[in-house]
Design a protein around this nucleic acid. Structure first.
Lengths: 210, 210
DNA sequence: TAGATTGTTAATCGATTAACAATC
DNA sequence: TAGATTGTTAATCGATTAACAATC
């Protein structure tokens, strides 16, 4: 694997490679050329080869890429074989949907705890996993190794929650709030999901034709 | 407003300007310089001025930008005063969360219909809005103007659903599935939300330190 | 007026695309 | 061998940052 820092643009394309390679594999396609892959991904063969070459020479001249090898290499690169232990903070609409819907173990994660402060839902279950009182967060994290937190709480509750999580040593976040975690904790890994920003972008695009 | 095509990168930053300007307004801040705004957004003053200048000279030399003017200009640019009529297709975990959680009318939209094929949930309500049988989609869309569809269904149901929606004249989509709409309908406006891709990216970043 | 800060042009940086020799 | 297709270098394109004259 290459030493050079891989650019964010490349990384963001890797899951798409992974998805399309999985499809090809399901269709029992054995090999694929950069040109064909580019077609599927709606990009250029050049980009495909550039991207894949960041990580090593997976291809064979005159042949292309082996679908199964390439797929498993990308799994390794993304680290999907991990089982990072995750806690979900906030079992409201979005949090519940995430907990119930995501196939965590195909994505490198395992959901090990769900926390909320709403007494009405404490004790009820999402996919076998009980919703715990946020008061027990410290105890839980001290007893169980936790790698990452999924933040599905209101924005104004976020600073306090992150403060507690950070103190517990959790430095990776999947952040559905608009709280700017990295602004306060620069050493942290964050993936932001700003659904309302995306809606606004969509709104702009719909306008654009005018 | 400028004729030049505005780049996607700029557009994706507009919601963030909007959010931070709203915050400043709440704090009764009257004016803001590109430098201050850059600090809040964690970018450069240069970028702020370049971005804003795509749309016209909202600033005043030696003074900066008026928070309220700038905010309302960005609302206009994004089109947040619109009430685009939306239907939600699929009232599963994600669909329900979206319907219940998003403040559509602050984001340029109005949710006017929810459709599903699961008989068990037909008739139940999310925020006053009844879940309708997907069989009635055509009838509903013919009787009501619909501008955009939010797709929260499984991937394999997506091609069929989009086919029907497209035939009904709906050419804008907020797409939570992995179905590549633009591949099949190039004239369509799509905003994709690929939550699992984002999880994989997070997984990669967590790995990276190793 | 002097200081601040914009709008805008120029310079830099990074990402994408093209080209082609290497080679299976 | 001939054809296909990679890996990689070079060229292009676009986005970000720097610089500075204009001006409030």
């Amino acid at each position: 694997m290459n030493k050079e820092k891989i650019s964010k643009s490349v990384i963001r394309r890797l899951p798409r490679y992974y998805r399309f390679l999985s499809e090809l594999e399901e269709q029992n396609v054995e090999r694929v050329s950069s040109g064909r892959l580019a077609q599927i991904m709606r990009t250029t063969a050049s980009q495909v080869r550039q991207d894949l070459n960041c990580f090593g020479g997976f291809g064979h001249q005159g042949y292309g890429y082996s679908v199964s090898t390439l797929k498993s290499e990308i799994i390794k690169i993304l680290g999907l074989n991990n089982r990072y232990k995750a806690v979900l903070i906030g079992a409201g609409h979005i949090g519940t949907a995430i907990a119930a819907h995501m196939k965590f173990n195909k994505l490198g994660f395992e959901l090990t705890g769900i926390f909320d402060n709403n007494e009405e839902i404490l004790g009820s279950k999402i996919n076998e996993l009980e919703i715990s009182d946020i008061k027990n967060l410290e105890q839980f994290c001290n007893e169980n190794k936790v790698d990452v937190a999924f933040l599905c709480i209101p924005k104004n509750a976020a600073p306090e929650a992150v403060k507690r999580l950070y103190q517990l040593g959790i430095k990776s976040y999947w952040n559905f709030t608009h709280y700017d975690i990295q602004g306060d904790y620069p050493d942290v890994v964050v993936e932001n999901v700003h659904l309302s920003d995306m809606m606004m972008t969509l709104c702009y695009s719909m306008n654009e034709g005018l």
